[in-house]
Design a protein around this nucleic acid. Structure first.
Length: 108
DNA sequence: ATGCTGACAGGAG
DNA sequence: ACTCCTGCCAGCA
């Protein structure tokens, strides 16, 4: 039984892995779901350490403004943008994701 | 064991 | 309105 690195990390992975297509989540949002609204940074760290075993759609995880990392992601922010658009996510001329439309809320 | 860093968020100036 | 700084939590050296 896969020993979890941490309940927190495990929780984050579970949440991210359940994000539906065409939707995105913010680190703070995920952190709050995991139980630590203050651990937004940890969520990002978890993504960095994110094992591909989990098939983590880290490209659906963005910061509060809907912008992705400078390019530390799986292949490039530009790559992520194309990926999200392919799922139905729209971007603002600013280059940020339209959180107002695609911000996933698990029960609201 | 301690300190530093880090895919963020939020408050203050 | 925008920008800068601090705070928080967990992993890693």
């Amino acid at each position: 039984m896969r020993k979890a690195p941490s309940d927190f990390f495990n929780h984050v992975y579970a949440i991210v892995a359940q994000i539906p297509h065409g939707c995105v989540l913010t680190y703070g949002q995920i952190a709050a779901m995991a139980g630590n609204p203050r651990a937004a940074r940890i969520v990002g760290y978890a993504m960095n350490s994110a094992p591909d075993d989990r098939d983590l759609p880290c490209h659906r995880v963005v910061n509060r403004i809907g912008e992705m990392a400078p390019g530390l992601i799986f292949g490039g922010a530009d790559r992520q943008r194309a990926m999200l658009e392919a799922e139905g996510v729209t971007f603002k001329p600013d280059g940020c994701i339209d959180l107002d439309k695609h911000l996933w809320w698990p029960k609201k």
